[in-house]
Write a protein that binds this DNA or RNA. Structure first.
Length: 156
DNA sequence: GCCAACGTTGGC
DNA sequence: GCCAACGTTGGC
């Protein structure tokens, strides 16, 4: 049984189209402990990911990806030239981790954050209640509901 | 561009 | 270990 997640990316930095073009990518640059722990400890190959565009207008879920490599050290933390460099990261204690994800598909339409907020079945989503977390768990029913919403017409 | 929410840092 | 200051995220 796969688990379900939501991962945020700013489309100007790395969009679903970029992921489609690349096929797969390292999810580097996460510098939040809670998000790191999910990647390091909980994500498994085959898990399904809702791909979310943050800082977009409107923000929302745009596609699906899949975990293809489980947590391993984020090498950008030890690269002084990287924007994500962290002097406290060492080989023995890498401090930051990433996973690899693969493009699965774009949804037929974006499901905007506002629609997610308006949907009663989604009121417990982490996205709605703790908006800052960039890697977060999603219930299977929530995942399926959002995918179903993308198959439907946008509400008036 | 503003600013609220919230996570992290560092002085004590 | 508390908590004020500070920095970042991300919606609007």
């Amino acid at each position: 049984m796969p688990q379900y997640w939501l991962m945020k990316s700013e489309p100007y930095v790395y969009s679903i189209d970029d992921l489609e073009e690349d096929g797969q990518t390292h999810w580097d640059g996460v510098r939040n402990y809670q998000a790191r722990n999910f990647m390091r400890d909980d994500m498994e190959v085959g898990d399904q990911v809702l791909y979310y565009h943050s800082n977009a207008s409107p923000p929302g879920v745009v596609g699906v990806a899949e975990v293809v490599r489980e947590g391993y050290p984020d090498h950008t933390a030890r690269d002084p030239d990287s924007d994500y460099y962290d002097e406290k990261a060492t080989e023995e204690d890498p401090r930051w981790y990433m996973v690899d994800i693969e493009f699965v598909r774009k949804l037929p339409r974006m499901v905007p954050l506002q629609e997610i907020k308006d949907e009663e079945a989604l009121e417990d989503m982490v996205l709605v209640n703790r908006s800052r977390l960039s890697v977060q768990p999603v219930e299977e029913a929530e995942f399926e509901r959002i995918v179903a919403m993308a198959e439907e017409e946008a509400p008036e």
